[in-house]
Design a protein around this nucleic acid. Sequence first.
DNA 1: AATGAATGAGCCTTCATTCAT
DNA 2: GATGAATGAAGGCTCATTCAT
Lengths: 208, 208, 208, 208
Amino acid sequence: MSEDDARTRILNVAGPIFAEKGFQATTIREICGQANVNVAAVNYHFGDKEHLYTEAVKRAHQPSGQPDELLEWPPGTTPETKLRDQIKAMLTRMLSERTPWQRQLMNREMLEPTFACRELVEAHIRDRFGQLLDILGEILPADVPAYRCHQVAFSIVGQALHYHVASHVVTVLVGEEEREAHYQIDQLVDHITQFSLAAMGLASPLAP
Amino acid sequence: MSEDDARTRILNVAGPIFAEKGFQATTIREICGQANVNVAAVNYHFGDKEHLYTEAVKRAHQPSGQPDELLEWPPGTTPETKLRDQIKAMLTRMLSERTPWQRQLMNREMLEPTFACRELVEAHIRDRFGQLLDILGEILPADVPAYRCHQVAFSIVGQALHYHVASHVVTVLVGEEEREAHYQIDQLVDHITQFSLAAMGLASPLAP
Amino acid sequence: MSEDDARTRILNVAGPIFAEKGFQATTIREICGQANVNVAAVNYHFGDKEHLYTEAVKRAHQPSGQPDELLEWPPGTTPETKLRDQIKAMLTRMLSERTPWQRQLMNREMLEPTFACRELVEAHIRDRFGQLLDILGEILPADVPAYRCHQVAFSIVGQALHYHVASHVVTVLVGEEEREAHYQIDQLVDHITQFSLAAMGLASPLAP
Amino acid sequence: MSEDDARTRILNVAGPIFAEKGFQATTIREICGQANVNVAAVNYHFGDKEHLYTEAVKRAHQPSGQPDELLEWPPGTTPETKLRDQIKAMLTRMLSERTPWQRQLMNREMLEPTFACRELVEAHIRDRFGQLLDILGEILPADVPAYRCHQVAFSIVGQALHYHVASHVVTVLVGEEEREAHYQIDQLVDHITQFSLAAMGLASPLAP
DNA sequence: AATGAATGAGCCTTCATTCAT
DNA sequence: GATGAATGAAGGCTCATTCAT
């Protein structure tokens, strides 16, 4: 009933498959099979497999309904609150139980970037990174050079990314129980926010 | 007189190749070509490609010479210094150009564990993680619960891991020039150490 | 108001493309692309690729303007001059860089006749062959039988045709340099004219 | 009973097929089908289709039994005789009733040279061309420059080649009957030899 | 009348694997 | 024990053609 033209159908099935298997291991035959179109359709609509992949990466933006909206705050919101919200959004995206294929795809691109990496960064990451920098701009003194702001931003992102990328390792190191007890999203938000604010002098450090 | 029989030769060349390209992208032909053996040799000696991979990963355990040694310090070394050394070692392992293939392979397995022996991977990290916890033990008050120490450790590791895992994204975000200018290993060591110490109250924060 | 309908446009671009690449190497897509029509247009207007080719060959008959004109001489012109002019015209047709596509197409058909109208080809040469025979008639004694005149004519044509048909081989045999230096059209005209006239007793032979 | 290994079998069937259909129109499937081997065999033995083609062109040398031997003469043979023999050999190769596929292949290469053209020239043409030049060297004065000898040689070759390349056109122009009556190999040998010798001053010209 | 979309057959190539020796 | 030869399944892609509109 919805947009069921071949092009859209291909794009819809391609994303999850690419996300699951990676670019190389995915066959256009499987994609076309699931999309109920002829193999030649990919060539017709996208030129070749690479272009289809790029398109799928771009499309990974808004999957089914709501676009990955940027956060917004009422005027007067403190940067501390904004930072916490941002960290929470980040962790939620990364760790949510039913990992959407978009996230999986992005992961792959991060670890083994393909030709589509730039597209991906521009479509998904640049804006969010900019927003994080804006928040840091409110926190850090004006004379901190840009590259230092970037490094701080990466320090924050890195803390969150770690739980996504090395989740298996985390479990092994601390055990299932501790994991269950202390690594829920909200707890991690608390920790990372506090750790980062303390590093910037806006929260009291762990050791006095 | 040394072991230059076909089986060993295959194993010797397989490691680096798998490390560089990953399991799937590696072809049996390339391995056999470099090992100067017939393509059939892999199947003959190892059954199939997967078994060869498993064997190669196992072999990655102890490099030809010394295993990745733990750091050691003379008595009286401050925890700040130890932490910095540890961070430097971590970043060096992750980012150095001339990474031995064993590390490369481990990295792959860490982020995307395959059928091949994840135990090996775990053994590989646990020691180092323990050492980091020891250092934090010297810094943090004794009443900080274990899980909080773990979280701090992950925050530190995460900051470093980020530059390994998202290196391409970093480049796209900040541009080649800033990258060249401000993201050399030593500069990152400075930043991460300072950021982390500040978070723990042992260094002055960026914002007063 | 002119005929810029799809059918005509296709026909117009098809000729040069077929001429340059031959029937098989030409794709319907390229033709339609250049003609700014849908790929389906060829099948719609011409049935299939072969019919389009046939039509294009037919159309090659009379170029947009004047047909390939026969040479003409003022009365009293010596047969030697006529022969040289004829040879020059022949070589020019065969070797000139800017050969109109009609000639190119004819050449193809001449050497490897396809299903498409070989009559056209024949009509194309007969006149010129007749003119060459007329010139020879002025040179050779009247009692030389017709078939001998034909053979002489073929000997002359053959010498010229060789440079068209085996041009690449010539280059490989004598090298680029000699080719550049001694196989320009005018030089070949000199040689072939002199060689042929000598064979007929109207010029001094190379060896005394 | 003879060499019926796959590689040889492929090579044996590839020649005639390539000759008949040309490089592009030939499918390795057809070749492998006729050779009773798997499609992958071409890749295994020759790398790819192009290399197989090149190999087939090279192999076009000695078809079934005797290699295409160079002519030899007893000492004291006159250059006129040698030239006639050479022309006869050339025409025989070109016009023999049951056109061997080798000839067909060479034809194709001449008109539309592929990547294998150089191979072909070196394997089939260079020696024979050299021999022809040797004969001309005995005939022409020593001070005739090399390039002029080449041109004379091409004039001789061209006359013969014409009957091969334009055979269809010849028939159309002179009719079946004259063709049957006056264009048998020996008659053409007579004509071309006489025409060429006359051009060089070693025979009496057609016109006194 | 004319087209954009879609098709299916077929092509060359790659790869892990097996087989005969 | 070890290998060169051979295989078959599969992959991406191209192309002329057809079909619904």
